[in-house]
């Protein structure tokens, strides 16, 4: 039977189904996800890994955060068997390391150790979703495209920072130990950026209402202008432009993110 039946079907011209939508007839969906991204590549290629520091027990430790994470909430509706529309909002958390060697006007280089700056991104994004012609959304593999807005906000807390060494321009170095628990001075406003998304997603039902999903987000984040950037005004070592440039630098290299969570159909 296993081999005979497929042969029969080779000769059959099938009719197409009429259009139906949804999972067991349910067309609306709410998705809760967590996103995880490894910044290793970013750090490796941006050559910042050697001087990134995290605070641990009141001291700085030369260490990288292994994962950046975030949360997403999607509300969607299947308009056709193979198409859907969504509104996504989410929070992302990541850290950036400041420049550690800063040139001063006096011809002196300050070698700094500074705790990485935590940044939170809030995003809003309308999305469209496509599946193959035989797709049965929201089940299975799908492709999502979206264009949205990101708001970047640095996280307020007491960051640890030390001046590790002081190097004079003629090559002579004098070690110093200056530690501050309020390295960055905050009163920053969020800045706006744009995000372009392609997501390859897989949803696997685990009950007749709930689906487990996972997928990969391919994003390009663009911060067009830093003219509105504020903050860091009292930090002698790090200019506000430098910091926002670092965030922009980081974001344009945050290409792939893994996402997983649960979808609820109703």
């Amino acid at each position: 039977m296993k081999l005979i039946v497929p042969i029969f079907f080779l000769f059959i011209h099938f009719f197409s189904l009429s259009q139906s939508k949804g999972f067991f007839g349910r067309r609306n969906i709410i998705e809760i996800s967590t996103t995880v991204q490894s910044p290793l590549l970013y750090n490796y290629y941006s050559a910042k890994n050697t001087t990134a520091y995290l605070a641990k027990n009141g001291a700085l430790e030369n260490k990288m955060p292994l994962l950046n994470y975030g949360f997403r909430l999607n509300i969607g509706r299947m308009t056709e068997r193979d198409r859907g529309i969504y509104l996504e909002s989410g929070l992302n958390y990541f850290s950036v390391a400041p420049n550690t060697t800063i040139y001063s006007n006096a011809g002196i280089y300050h070698h700094l150790k500074a705790e990485m700056l935590d940044v939170r991104t809030f995003s809003v994004m309308p999305k469209i979703e496509f599946a193959s012609a035989d797709g049965l959304l929201p089940v299975g593999i799908s492709n999502q495209f979206g264009i949205g807005i990101n708001y970047y906000q640095t996280q307020e807390k007491n960051y640890l920072g030390t001046v590790d060494s002081l190097e004079v321009s003629n090559g002579m170095t004098t070690p110093v130990n200056i530690t501050t628990s309020n390295y960055y001075d905050f009163h920053t406003k969020a800045i706006k950026g744009y995000t372009f998304l392609y997501k390859l997603s897989m949803r696997i039902p685990i009950t007749e209402r709930i689906l487990f999903h996972f997928g990969f987000r391919y994003t390009y984040n663009y911060i067009p202008s830093l003219s509105g950037a504020t903050g860091f005004s009292h930090t002698t070592a790090v200019s506000k432009t430098d910091m926002w440039e670092l965030i922009r630098h980081k974001e344009t290299r945050s290409l792939i993110t893994f996402e997983t969570g649960l979808s609820f159909c109703f």
Partner: peptide, 17 residues
Amino acid sequence: GVSYYFREPLNLHILKA
């Protein structure tokens, strides 16, 4: 008749859907 071609992994719920 219907002829479907899809790319999801098969479990009972997918088959049921």
